[in-house]
Nucleic acid binder design. Sequence first.
DNA 1: CGATTCTTTGAAAACAGTCAATCTGTGTGG
DNA 2: CCACACAGATTGACTGTTTTCAAAGAATCG
Lengths: 193, 193
Amino acid sequence: MYEQFEAYITSQATLTQDELRMIRSLASTRRVRKRHFLLREGEICQHKIFVAKGLLRSYHVREDGSEHIMRFSPENTWTTEHDSLFSQIPSRIHIEALEDSEVVLFTRESLEKIHFAIPEFKAYIDRFLTSTLSQTYERIMMNLSYSSEEKYQDFITTFPDVFNRVPLHMVASYLGVSRETLSRIRHAQAQKE
Amino acid sequence: MYEQFEAYITSQATLTQDELRMIRSLASTRRVRKRHFLLREGEICQHKIFVAKGLLRSYHVREDGSEHIMRFSPENTWTTEHDSLFSQIPSRIHIEALEDSEVVLFTRESLEKIHFAIPEFKAYIDRFLTSTLSQTYERIMMNLSYSSEEKYQDFITTFPDVFNRVPLHMVASYLGVSRETLSRIRHAQAQKE
DNA sequence: CGATTCTTTGAAAACAGTCAATCTGTGTGG
DNA sequence: CCACACAGATTGACTGTTTTCAAAGAATCG
């Protein structure tokens, strides 16, 4: 499963064999079965996670029990709880596998070593952070100004791969509408066509 | 007005006199009067903007004319349109002064030079980016799971300074509710107390 | 003061959430 | 192989919230 990560990272940054070796020596790997957790609310997040295979979700549970999905993480994406990882405070989100998954893990210390030793890697992470921030603003814009129907359409076209792999009630949770409302939106759209 | 920026940056990063001189030589400053724009939709964003004095808003206008405020930028904050600045694509947002303001501007090239020459500055920017990302996720979580009333309360306590300086209809636009709804929320809360 | 901007209010309509029931497909154990 | 449990999706009836439209009160500024 580590090969998947190495293939990905070499496609994103130009790294020497030595550098790749160093990164490999600081990474660990793990299989997570469907419905199992990589992080639970209240725990201190220990790793930045690269998804080599499978699909994860990060979600928050409110006091009333309602779940809100912050993010889906399919293959070749990173995920973590930044606040918890960098400030060592208890996580407020859960990270759960929605499919049997394989992940590559880096501790904060490992990442710091890598960033320090390999500017190319750091530059990639910077690019990645910037584009993540853009996408995040995109989502805020969507939340502010789109109708539920538009949000749903946008999700389908922006994340067709995720859409086909998760139950609809999770799409609803990601969009911030009830599953019944999403169901009715789908019904209304099917009528139109 | 540049002094304000220098005071701020030296409080955030340990810089030598030489480094400060370099930064100063690459910055430019500008006064913007209330209701004037630093960036308009369709233009290519040329600068990263530090607000030394005053208050800016970044907002998006939909085809139907509705305005959605992405961010308020008071003193000692940065703002820009990342996508436009780094990819040289037309901006989809406007950046407007809500008060007479003074800003310090850096072009992308200047920033790159500074990042390259002054690791301390780069480290500060990295910390800043990370914390911005966290806040942004915070806002998404709020959008997904809070009621309008909770969003309003959260805004008041998180940004009391901004709250006291902007008209309520802009708070409504930031929160994603109509100004009438916000007005009614306020009325209901005044009743309670 | 007069004009503009901002805020509030009322009434109707649109929209979304909740609760409860039903339907569908999948997979497991007897 | 069937029966059953289970997770997911849909539907109906009802309730509650939010938007929209129109109008009227404050507040602010030149």
